[in-house]
């Protein structure tokens, strides 16, 4: 199974995302921002970073990139797409997910191991989790405060589209503790924290068992590979 990882100018975590794909057992394919061809990939990851220097608004210019026009079209046809951090910002700017992300409430850039509650497992990227499971993956952002109007929030809650909520601490002032969302179909998921940084023992968050042994992020990638095999 081939999973495309998009690189925009200013993307930082494309290599880590590609490595996560390989560790989960998939083949990672590099996709370039100027490319309109997705090279027959079965799913796409929009990794974190600062695409186009966060100019205009985080993710706004990336949302206009040639590769995104194809991704938007295919995502609407069911292609699994995961947006991480800046990738989540690209998804909201592309209108594949609703709402917006603004500067953290306390105005600081945060970098911490973050506990999340898995709120929805009926997606291509979360099927290997159990509902209500608590996971820990790194969070690092300056503009991660999720906002939406009351009507949208009501719809997100009512239609079960909230996929991850911050647990214990709300690190950035996100409304309803929203850390990640899915679309109605469940093929598109976006979240601020970084699953690709918690996929290999020795390099992940600390756990009660051992330092840096957390690999909760790996299930995002094994979930999508499994959903592709079953599809």
């Amino acid at each position: 199974m081939k999973i495309g990882v998009v690189t925009f100018p200013g993307t930082l975590d494309d290599r880590d995302a590609a490595r996560a794909v390989r560790l989960a057992g998939g083949e990672a394919v590099s996709l370039w921002h100027a490319d309109t061809n997705l090279h027959d990939v079965d799913a796409v990851v929009l990794p974190g970073g600062f695409s186009y220097g966060d100019y205009l608004r985080c993710g706004a210019i990336a949302a206009q990139a040639p590769v995104m026009q194809t991704i938007i079209e295919k995502a609407n046809e069911g292609l699994p797409v995961l947006g991480i951090c800046n990738g989540f910002q690209v998804l909201v700017e592309s209108h594949l997910l609703p709402g917006g992300l603004i500067r953290n409430e306390h105005q600081h850039f945060i970098c911490r191991d973050q506990k999340l509650i898995v709120e929805n497992v009926d997606t291509a990227w979360t099927s290997e989790f159990t509902l209500g499971q608590e996971i820990t993956i790194p969070l690092k952002n300056g503009e991660g405060g999720y906002i939406a109007d009351q009507e949208t929030l009501k719809r997100l809650e009512g239609e079960n589209l909230i996929t991850f909520r911050y647990s214990e601490v709300n690190p950035n002032g996100s409304m309803n503790n929203i850390a990640g969302l899915r679309n109605a179909r469940g093929n598109v998921v976006g979240l601020m924290p970084h699953p690709e940084h918690a996929v290999e023992p020795g390099f992940g968050p600390d756990t009660s068992i051992a330092m840096r042994s957390g690999v909760d992020g790996l299930k995002f990638f094994t979930s999508v590979l499994k959903s592709l095999v079953e599809a």
Binding site: L56, R57, A60, Q64, V92, E93, P98, G99, G100, I102, I147, A148, D149
Partner: peptide, 9 residues
């Protein structure tokens, strides 16, 4: 469509 985001601006 592009210079502003109606959700926040």
């Amino acid at each position: 469509d592009f210079l502003s985001n109606g959700v926040i601006e």
